[in-house]
């Protein structure tokens, strides 16, 4: 069974994460002004993923969860990726 300890994060630390999210939002806006060619979408997605990771790790406390929860969560992401990519393969090879 997972640890069921309370994890109190300081306001200071949470504010730091919030700051990070704001900076990354600015980065999202910034990169949208530059034309990176075919990298446009991957770069935007990468920045968005970084933001989602920060939210999950600290605001949603996944960093402090047991292994089972971590593995469960990561597998959901992998699953989504597989579902989308399998559908796209069909279109790509049709």
């Amino acid at each position: 069974m997972e640890e069921e300890q309370e994890h109190q994060l300081s306001y200071r630390f949470l504010a730091l994460i919030l700051g990070g999210l704001v900076v990354l939002t600015a980065v999202t806006v910034g990169v949208s002004y530059v034309d990176w060619g075919f990298l446009n979408v991957p770069i935007s997605l990468f920045v968005a993923s970084c933001k989602a990771t920060l939210v999950l790790l600290f605001f949603m406390h996944i960093k402090y969860e047991g292994l089972a929860i971590k593995v469960s969560f990561i597998s959901t992401v992998i699953f989504l990726a597989i579902m989308i990519s399998f559908t796209f393969w069909d279109v790509a090879f049709r």
């Binding site: 399998f86 393969w89 069909d90 279109v91 790509a92 090879f93 049709r94």
Partner: peptide
């Protein structure tokens, strides 16, 4: 359904 052959195989 007319899906790609690669997908049928996989």
């Amino acid at each position: 359904s007319g899906m790609s052959d690669v997908s049928v195989f996989v």
